[in-house]
Design a protein around this nucleic acid. Structure first.
Lengths: 242, 242
DNA sequence: TAGTGGTCTAGACCACCTG
DNA sequence: AGGTGGTCTAGACCACTAG
């Protein structure tokens, strides 16, 4: 059950990605597009506001809507903001490159006070601890530590952690979509331990992303840290006023 | 002329910040709030979707809307996403701390091809080059290089660059609001040159933010790089699905 | 079943931009 | 003046959650 305004947004995004509209070009007005797609202006506006937030168009009062210059790059974008859903690493990049993982550790542990607080469980409750090195085209690019509430996800097969998408597994396992991802990004340097796992020199620059992931019903299931090679990742940020 | 849904959003945000609603607490339903504020549900929903994006509440289908745990921290947040407008450094932090600047350089130069492309002007057109060290409570925390289209802003007083808010000056100068800020965030290490300007050791971790700033009519007026001490700044990221 | 948020309609008027 | 996006109304029905 996909909302009409999402379908329309994706349809127009497709038109932009397939160059049916060119960069800088004016696309049809709200009233025209509403007629074309057979919806009211309110619905169409929801689509276009989304598309603006995702950085594909600019809406300019009195003038119209224009296709934005798209940033191409040779590094990967964490959070390109161009998705309706929280995808996770595998689903985010699997179309662009070969994604794989090396499982370093997977244990069931009692939650420390800090972990318990972040996962909104009682200290001592069982949580999965998972450490993985993640690779793009067979090059290690990041280390990820995840704590997962074992009351939400009892069983996590190790084969999945080496190959599949954990987020996809959790969505099918729980029957709920992932909706929230609140994260904080910091800059830092790779420690000896992390650098060894990635096969690089310690002291190189790192982007650290930490945060919690929640299902659409508000359940927190994941608290994670990822330590990303700063030469491999950037973060895009499309700020639109009002 | 402030839109009603912005007023309502700010009113409820205020209620949260002043603890009139507590963390985790359920706030009144859309229908109740719409009645209270004397608007329709559609208008009220615009307010609440904004508030969700800014990370103050979570909307949960079938349950209600809940106040989110607010992250407190001893470092400063670049892009806390909690503003309707692009504020710039001075206006972003002046309520939290004493903000000042040290003007290192201010020249009028012909645009290089790269600068010209970013500012959407012809190479050789005049642009302001401004380098400033910016301080929070008298501690240097970042170096910022800005290129500003001199066709949009002819005159920039040096006193302003040492004391005031450049963005505020530009909004009054042009009579237009700043609407777009498209930026890219990277991790890196401080070079000798930058470290000397900040009075720190080279090789310390840095967050580099580069991007262009536009007015509400789409005019690009600023192309800038800022080099931020990674021990002083973080970036918050509230991802909400759909 | 009752209450919640999610989506959508068919209008209306306003503010901004261009010729 | 005519076209554009920005805001807002007064409804309606659907999907999810709880008791």
């Amino acid at each position: 059950m996909v909302a009409r305004y999402i379908e329309i947004k994706n349809s127009i995004k497709d038109d932009i990605l397939h160059k049916r509209y060119r960069v800088g070009e004016k696309i049809p007005s709200e009233r025209e597009l509403a007629l074309i797609y057979g919806v009211t202006r309110v619905t169409l506006q929801k689509s276009m506001h989304l598309l603006e937030q995702e950085g594909f168009i600019e809406r300019i009062h009195g003038k119209g809507m224009f296709v934005t210059r798209v940033i191409e790059d040779n590094v990967y974008m964490l959070n390109n903001g161009a998705s309706d859903t929280v995808l996770g690493f595998s689903r985010e990049f699997h179309l662009q490159a070969k994604i794989s993982s090396r499982l370093i550790s997977h244990k069931l542990l009692p939650a420390t006070p800090e972990i318990a607080q972040q996962l909104a469980v009682l200290p001592g409750q069982h949580v999965h601890f998972i450490r993985r090195v993640r690779l793009i085209d067979n090059t290690p690019v990041l280390v990820e530590d995840s704590w997962i509430n074992a009351a939400v996800i009892t069983e996590i097969p190790d084969t999945l952690l080496n190959e599949g998408s954990l987020y996809e597994y959790i969505e099918t396992y729980t029957g709920k979509k992932i909706k929230f991802y609140n994260s904080v990004i910091e800059g830092g340097l790779f420690s000896r331990e992390m650098a060894d796992l990635l096969g690089i020199a310690p002291g190189l620059p790192m982007l650290k992303v930490s945060g919690v992931t929640k299902l659409e019903d508000g359940t927190i299931f994941n608290y994670s840290f990822s330590y990303n090679r700063a030469d491999k990742f950037k973060i895009k940020n499309n700020w639109v006023g009002k």
